[in-house]
Amino acid sequence: MKKSITIGHLYPDLLNLYGDRGNIQCMMKRCQWRGIEARTIEYNLDDTIDFSELDIVLLGGGSDREQMLVCRKLQEIQKDFKAYVEDYGVVIAVCGGYQLLGNYYQTDQGRMEGLHLVDLYTEQQPGRLIDNIVLQSDLCEMPVVGFENHGGRTKIGGNKPFGKVLYGSGNDGESGYEGVVYKNVIGTYLHGPLLPKNPQICDYLIGKALERKYKEKISLEPLEDLEEEEANTYITKRFL
């Protein structure tokens, strides 16, 4: 039987700041190139989300103002979202979406309540951390490359980071680590967007989603990744 995957894109009308469409496109294409059916459901602020039909959830980044609008809405779906995460549902949360995973985001405008999906918090500090960034992650062999642009400093406590910073600032500019991995959730500041230049991370998410859905060991058919690898290598060579 042909396998299929459903991606839920949360609030793309508000959280779409840094080419998040590229992450969706990447997941869709890498499924389709392997003969896996893929579809994306876009949820706007007024839509009801049925997490039971989703295999991957993407929560992108927005401006502070728009993030505030989303944050109120998220409280309504917190319970369902939490249950999905605890049941090993796959989530990729980028920039603002990453901050919203945590307990709160303290800005100079006030405090945004988070989703409490992962035990972490973010506090705004003067100066934005803006640059290209390179990580070494346990989730893949290739270095992870991207771009970060955030005023918030995220503290992940005892959680596992997404990667070790080889170039750039990462979670808080001090710890030497970037992002978070909790069950099948990845939270990260990396856009660029993240997945096209880091195809192994994309395949990791697809693999986890298929294993959860079909309850079997999945080994994804390898793809020809020349363009992905060269774009990735360009950044690593330039900054390391």
């Binding site: 779409n16 840094y18 080419g19 998040d20 469409r21 590229g22 496109q25 803006i130 640059d131 290209n132 771009f147 642009n149 856009h191 660029g192 967007p193 096209p196």
Partner: peptide, 9 residues
């Protein structure tokens, strides 16, 4: 702009 993520938009 050093960030070229907009290409995907």
């Amino acid at each position: 702009g050093t960030d070229i993520s907009w290409l995907w938009d």
